[in-house]
Design a protein around this nucleic acid. Structure first.
Lengths: 192, 192
DNA sequence: CCGGTTTGTATCGGTCTGACATATGTCAGG
DNA sequence: CCTGACATATGTCAGACCGATACAAACCGG
């Protein structure tokens, strides 16, 4: 999906500056949906102006730097809805944490647990962020997407919290590979 | 995360060709963890040879084209473990489906439902794919990651199936004009 | 023997990332 | 009142990446 389309989507709801658009995707209502960076947003907005899919005016603010506020044009709305009608690509995930974690056998046990702790903290932040975006007036489809994100984050957190403990318990001497689910020994002090 | 690191990770377990590495990330055990494309893998493998982090030999096959099989070197293992020790970036998600879905109010109701159906079918395929990767001999940390992916996929599927029905119920009969004020909060139900 | 599918390697234009540069303004603290 | 830390705000750029395409060898059904 093109950064231009993402910016148009952000502008569909209300006018915004580049900085504000970014915040919609980082901590805002789109944060669980799509990642896009500064380096894509500003060039995309310039292109939107060229194509007259958006207009721009400078807003002077008291106590803050000026900002360039972009608004979508009727032609922009048409272009956006046309872009939405294309067949969407499948979801793409990029989790460095899980990738590193999957090589946990080659890492110190403490590093693995630290990594999981950081993972949990990260998802707690994300969950809190989109919880703040809640709004009683969300139309049904928006609420559908919003709650989807919350559900996924909560599931991830529950899994991580629950099975982190299992990993600690399962720490074993060399030979035992067969992991019997259901067998839990009380956590001893010594990690390896 | 660099494509070089991802390739080294794939080679940590066993030697593989570029094509086989790709399959690990598309439908294989890494498919729920990280997306990486052909255009990154082949150049990365060339760099690995340059740095002597991997070696390569041509394997002639009967009934198939020859392939270039890469193996990680001791220096490659060192470089990989070093790369793992860097602080991981937060997870990045890119879901065109959810993005489009969040503008469902501007689309025909049937298009929204079709989109959800395609979303469900996509996740069913993904779940089936990593289910096939299951293996009783997985060490604990690998199993942790494997089951994490399964849990996330299953949660997504359950949410989509359940709340798709809600969206249908909320549909106002035939009169096309989007959401009627006052009706839209009603269902939207529990996230728990 | 033709077209379709799978396996396999490789490249390339266009796009995106992540870090950096630049600037204005607040606020706490010395 | 100066400094440093932080938030707001716009923008650029080298390098990395994506997705489409090309090429090729082998299989298989009709």
């Amino acid at each position: 999906m093109d950064a231009k389309t993402l910016c148009l989507g952000a502008l569909m709801h209300s006018e915004a500056s580049g900085y504000e658009i970014r915040k919609l995707f980082e901590g805002g209502p789109f944060s669980a949906i799509y990642d896009v960076s500064f380096g894509s947003i500003y060039p995309a907005l310039t292109v939107l102006l060229d194509r007259e899919w958006a207009t721009c005016c400078v807003a002077e603010q008291s106590g803050r730097p000026d900002k360039k506020v972009y608004s979508i044009t009727p032609a922009g709305r048409v272009a956006f809805l046309e872009a939405l009608s294309t067949t969407p690509a499948p979801d793409k995930m990029r989790s460095e944490m899980l990738f590193i974690l999957s090589f946990g056998d080659h890492l110190p046990r403490t590093a693995v647990l630290d990594l999981i702790d950081r993972y949990i903290a990260d998802y707690e932040d994300r969950l809190a962020a989109i919880d703040d975006c809640d709004d009683d007036t969300l139309p049904p489809v928006r609420r559908f997407v919003h709650n989807f994100g919350i559900t996924m984050y909560e599931t991830a957190l529950e899994y991580l919290r629950t099975h982190r403990a299992d990993l600690v318990d399962e720490t074993t001497p060399a030979t035992d590979h067969a992991h019997q689910p259901g067998e839990h020994i009380a956590t001893a002090g010594g990690v390896q």
